[in-house]
Structure formats: structure tokens, C-alpha cells
Amino acid sequence: MTISVENLETRQVDPTKPLLEVDRLVMHYKIKAGEVSAVEDVTFTVHQGEAVGLVGESGCGKTSVALSLMRLLPNNAEYVSGQIRLDGEDLLQLTDEEMRTRRWKDIAMVFQGAMNSWNPVYRVGDQIREVLDTHFRGQMTYEQQREHMERLFAAVGLPGEMLDRYPHEFSGGMRQRAVIAMALACSPQLIIADEPTTALDVIVQDQILKELKRIQTELGMSIIYISHDIAVIAEVTDSLGVMYAGKLVEYGPTTEVFARPKHPYAYLLLKSTPSITGPRRQLAPLEGEPPDLLAPPTGCRFHPRCPFATERCAIEEPPLADIGGGHRVACWHWEQVPDLEEALLR
């Protein structure tokens, strides 16, 4: 079986050009008890060909950000303010119908529940064909569609005959590969991978991440990885954002954030994760739970759990400020946060 993306359309990449700009995005869920501030003032930019990672604990707003970008939020969600610009165009201003035609064509998604991403009663090939029918209506013959789908399957290392199988006949890893193949169907500029490998075993997880990375660089796509597992994400991303309680608390080049996290939350999150390749180290559990977003803490949302917190943290909200080299941190005391490497060596 040969894996090749040769026959798929590749894109010229200019890494200085922004593709997706999320600008001060605020999104709330309205429930009976009040408003849940799920995404609060999130700003980041994905450049052409860039891989961006978003990490954080469960319930910190990662998936809400992902769904916001595609406008797939449930009915009770409300965009309070901010912009999501794709190639300079604000997606929040589009009509529902315009947005529908953009989905998958411009932004495709690899979902968290990859196992259940397939409708059990249709053949996998027919579910991919549906995408082509919708976005290239009348532009492809049945045979051309088949040919295209076989190329997509080849790109993720699946034999073309598998197109005629039902989802339950695939293994977990194969299903996830097929999902990636489907995501490539319209050569989108951006893929959002929400926990793409969470349900898979470690070996398959590694294979799939590497393949996704290779496809992404070779085809010149941008990608947003979303995961709770910072170690997994650090391997494949260029930039890394850390989210806490609906806010982006740290953002910067992956190497910087990973080696020298400056936000206490990012620092503690990293310290609580064992490293397979790095030095053996004492693990420090991250105490407490993320706050209730119906009534988030005043000031810095992390202050109730933060060992560095002072009175100021409870009153004033720290801005996401640049500390040099594109590394941005939302903390009043970032200078006190020790370097992770130093801390580990001690």
C-alpha cells in the first residue's frame, strides 16, 4: 500500500500571511440559570501553513472555540462580540446559507468522537461523496468522484475498496484515517482537529498524528489541533495556546511555551504531565477544579488555584501581553514563574 499525496492539489504557502484571525471573540451559552461565559476575549492568528495547538483541561472552552469557528454551536449559544476573519472576511457576518457553503470547503473538521463521526447506515464512500455532491454540484461525474475519493484514501493509506465498506467494518484507526481523508475532500485551507486521536491507542495515535502533520505540510494547509494532552500536541504544532476557563492565558511559539511556560496554569499543567523523552521528574498534581463559568472568579480566572496569586489578581484582570518573541501571557506575575527546565533539574 503506497501512501501518497502526490495526486492531491497542493497550495502555495506564504507563512507571513494570516489565514484565520480570531479577534477578541466572546461567546456565551444562555441557560436557565444565566449566561455561561464559555469563550471570553480570545485572540489568536493562524498563518498560512501554520499548525496551532489549543490545550487546556476539560470544560475550559477548547471545543467551544472550535465549534465557534465553524458556527456549529447549539442554538443557545450567542456570539457577544469579536470577529473571526478567514482571509480577511468576517465569518460571523455571513448569512447561514453562505456559512453553510463555506463549511468543509474552507474549513474542515476532524472530530473528537471520531468513532461516531460516521453515520452507521451508509457506506463510507457514500458519506464522502455527499461532500462532493454538496460542494461541487454538477462539476464532477460519478467516476471522477470515485477517482478523487480513491486518491484521498491513498493519501491516508487506505485501500480504495474500503470506500464500499460500512463504518462498523473499519477499525478505530482506519475510521480516523477515513475521517481525515474526508476532511481533505474539498482541499480546505484550514482543518480543525478536535481531539483527533483521543480514543485511539498510543501507537495508532502517534501514526495518525504524524500522517496528519505530513499531509498538512505537504498540501500547504493550516491546522488547529485541540487537545487536553499538551505533550501530544507539542510535537506537531508551530504555535501553542493554553486556555483556562474560557480565556486564552498564554500563546506563543510551541518551543517557547513548552520549554518556558510563563503562565502559572501552563507551568503547573506541564509539571503535572510526565515526559517520556525528557528527564525523569517529580510530578506535581494540579490541585482544584476549573471554576463555574456561570459566575467566573473576578480578576484573573485562575487566581483561586494559583500559588502566585496576590490581592491584585483577584481584582484586576491581567491582559494578554507580549513578553517578547510573539510570546504572550495573561498574568501579573509571569516573571516569578520559574523556567520549567530549571525547576525540573532542581
Binding site: R100, R102, R103, F111, M115, N116, N119, T134, M182
Partner: peptide
């Protein structure tokens, strides 16, 4: 179900999601 979210993300028209999926 997750595949309904997938269908929506695929940009399928509402009628298709409702009837076909």
C-alpha cells in the same frame, strides 16, 4: 449523535441532514 454534527460540519443542507441522516 456525533454524525449529525459531522453532517452539519460538512455543510450539508438542513433538509439532507434531517431526512438522510
Amino acid at each position: 449523535e456525533d454524525y449529525i454534527l459531522t453532517a452539519r460540519a460538512k455543510g450539508l443542507p438542513d433538509r439532507v441532514i434531517r431526512d438522510r441522516h
